[in-house]
Amino acid sequence: MTLESIIRVTDVRKVFGLLPVLDGVSLEVRGGEAVALLGANGAGKTTLLKILATLLRPTRGTATIGGHDVAREPEAVRALIGVVAHGAWVYDDLTARENLRFWATLGGLEAGADDVAAALAGVGLERAADARVRTFSAGTKRRLSLARVMLARPRVLLLDEPFAGLDQRAKKWLEGRLEAFKAAGAALLMVTHSLGRELGVADRLAVLAGGRIALDTARGSLGPDDVLRLYAAHAEEAL
């Protein structure tokens, strides 16, 4: 496991109009570590993820990935991150293989046919490789989205509700994939407001409430009831 902090968020504030959504958030994620970012709707989880993904600029404070400032060096950051967002980022009228080839080329990756085939096999889509994405279920699209990310071999994985809309079998499968990313030394930050299976992947839990990190603790042997109790206490306290 790598102990170096790959994601470093320091006193980040983000204001939309007059409304502060993040108000002094600080957080670190090391290589080979997964942090689950919990919080109620509107707590600012996705905003923080978008700042790290270089899609939003912080109003104040700094956020770095691999030592690169997300606001000042977005291109360097983009080369390090893989993002699995709410949308799958796939074109319905292209096949799974065509989608991966397109994103690989656009990302400047030297991905050959074998790499694309391996990425599809890695997410169990080898048989559906030449089927149009229009025919895929939400779970299958999520798999393809992960194959897109796998192809780029990112050092940092930013996930927004990665388990949303997946059935139990698909959740178990995704858990395995995320564990593999961690084992390869990647840093994972996943945003969720679910307290179920996805927390099994997380090494640490961070609760975002009132624009700040209200709790940052090792998951350790915390059971679902402990997590729920801690979440409720800290989220409500901050509100």
Partner: peptide
């Protein structure tokens, strides 16, 4: 429109280069 309909706009933004 195709990027907006398929939520691919952010993907284009994040493409390096």
């Amino acid at each position: 429109l195709v990027e907006r309909e398929h939520d691919c706009w952010e993907g284009l933004l994040l493409a390096p280069g």
